[in-house]
């Protein structure tokens, strides 16, 4: 029952990107990152190393954070992809986006989209993450500017908002005094 291998040429796949069905064709060696940025014009997802070493290109694949530079575009066929462009609902920011802006958790901003998505997946499955949970979820996203402190704080603030708490960033946090 072995089928013949598909001939070289363009791959044609359909998938869901940020809630919209999308059809796209591209050479089969292209990574999901390249398909998103080049073929779908979604440049919010950044490239930092293209070898799976920095986390900058993190997107959600079926709700799970993955490195879009390591996932071949063809492997995303039939699946749901979410990028930073799909986080806000119209003009209404996702609580994580709001918290990152409020607390200054984005400096140069280049790693921010990837971190936001990794954090969104975390809060989706764990509304009350501990410090250890945040570490495990975000240790794969390198940031060279912030020192990560405000990223921790922003994730915790957003988590509180999403739980419906009327939270403000603490004057003294467990990560250090302000």
């Amino acid at each position: 029952m072995a089928r013949r291998a598909e001939p070289p040429g363009h791959a044609h796949i359909s998938l869901e990107v940020n809630g919209e069905p999308v059809e796209v064709s591209f050479p089969p060696h292209k990574t999901l990152l390249e398909v998103l940025r080049e073929d779908l014009g979604l440049t919010g997802t950044k490239h930092g190393c293209e070898l799976g070493e920095c986390g900058t290109c993190t997107v959600l694949l079926d709700g799970q954070p993955v490195l879009s530079c390591l996932v071949l575009g063809v492997a995303a066929a039939g699946r749901k992809v979410k990028t930073v462009e799909g986080m806000a609902r119209g003009p209404e920011l996702h609580p994580l986006q709001r918290a990152f802006a409020d607390l200054g958790a984005a400096q140069c901003g280049y790693c921010t989209p990837g971190i936001l998505l990794a954090a969104e997946a975390l809060l989706e499955r764990n509304p009350r993450p501990t410090r250890q949970d945040i570490k495990e979820a975000l240790a794969g996203n390198l940031c060279r500017c912030t020192g990560y402190i405000k990223i921790y704080e922003a994730v915790e603030l957003a988590a509180a908002w999403m739980r419906g708490e009327d939270a403000a960033p603490p004057e003294e946090s467990i990560y250090g005094r302000r």
Binding site: G44, V84, E85, M87, L93, R98, G104
Partner: peptide, 14 residues
């Protein structure tokens, strides 16, 4: 708040 915070958290900063 940073003037470019919004652009950076929404992925529109170019």
């Amino acid at each position: 708040e940073r003037l470019d915070a919004l652009a950076k958290v929404t992925g529109t900063a170019r």
